[in-house]
């Protein structure tokens, strides 16, 4: 069964001057962990707000849990958990009070659905009397997740839940999402971090209001059209300049410790690349073929 269906959604702001979504369609299966990957301004938050019944689309239809977002928004609000990108719990209420409040608002209690949030909440328990505004970034996100989960939603919308969170907390956060998936909860999560994309069942790559591709992370990587080369040397900046000046270069960008490079013609240009760089007298030159990451695929699609 499909948990979230969006078909041909359009949305623009400022009377049509700023397009935010252009013909966006996607569907998320029940119990699927679906990632929305894209840079800032890709339209991820707009899509979330439409699906969470906070915003009306200009055109197109969307269904959440089989219910239309326009007509049945009241019913949808009982069934979804939404975690906005910005921390939006009551900062002057304590951890416990926030959770208790959101449980009560949904007509339930902390005890009733405690099993769902137990793993996360246990980490927060030592701080349960602390004001939410005084928590660290990672703790805040964990509390927000608890509050979005406490009414046992069937669909979870997480808008950039790990932005501004330290790497350890990010890892923990994704482990929790994997567990929630086991409970049959469908999760739509957005992130600007490409490394998190590989943790999703399927991802949609978004850019400027459009969806570039939807597939499993491994398929997306398989679809990478060319061989990818990682090139490094002592003078990395000069190397980048030289690689970009190379006549057979298709694309080159710096990527951590090395530069990632694609060539116009994989077979014939590889040899001339070696020769070209040796001529430029780069020291410690290393040229290897590597397996592309989602980020490489994303860069290739732009």
């Amino acid at each position: 069964m499909e948990s979230i269906v969006a078909s041909h959604l359009y949305k623009s702001f400022d009377k049509g001057r700023i397009p935010a979504l252009l013909d966006v369609s996607l569907s998320v299966e029940q119990g699927e962990l679906f990632g929305l990957i894209g840079p800032d301004g890709a339209g991820k938050t707009t899509l979330f707000r439409i699906l969470a019944t906070l915003l009306l689309a200009d055109q197109g239809e969307a269904k959440v849990d089989g219910l239309d977002v326009k007509q049945a928004y009241k019913a949808i609000r009982h069934r979804v958990g939404y975690m906005p990108g910005r921390f939006s719990l009551y900062q002057d209420l304590s951890v416990e009070e926030n959770l208790d409040f959101f449980a009560k608002v949904f007509g339930t209690t902390i005890q009733e659905n405690y099993y769902l949030v137990k793993d996360i909440y246990q980490q927060l328990e030592p701080f349960k009397t602390r004001k939410a505004g005084k928590l660290s970034g990672g703790m805040k996100q964990k509390l927000a997740l608890c509050c979005a989960l406490i009414h046992k939603p069937s669909v979870l919308f997480l808008d950039e839940p790990t932005t501004g969170v330290d790497p350890v907390s990010r890892k923990e956060f994704w482990e929790m999402l994997q567990k929630l998936k086991q409970e049959g909860i469908s999760i739509l999560v957005s992130t600007p971090y490409m490394d998190e994309a590989s943790l999703c069942d399927r991802v949609a790559l978004m850019q400027k209001g459009k969806i570039l591709d939807i597939d499993t992370p491994s398929h997306i990587i398989d679809k990478f059209p060319k061989k990818l080369w990682a090139v490094s040397a002592t003078n990395m900046y000069q190397l980048l300049m030289d690689l970009r000046a190379f006549s057979a270069t298709a694309a080159c960008y710096s990527f951590g410790e090395s530069h990632h490079l694609t060539l116009k013609n994989d077979a014939s240009d590889a040899a001339s690349l070696q020769q070209y760089l040796t001529e430029k007298k780069h020291k410690d030159l290393k040229i290897n073929t590597i397996k592309p990451t989602i980020e490489d695929c994303f860069m290739a699609m732009l």
């Binding site: 019944t53 009982h78 906005p84 939006s88 009551y90 959101f102 608002v105 949904f106 007509g107 509050c147």
Partner: peptide
Amino acid sequence: EVGTIEQINVTPI
């Protein structure tokens, strides 16, 4: 301003 209204708006309140 703080954004809490977003969170309230998605509840059945």
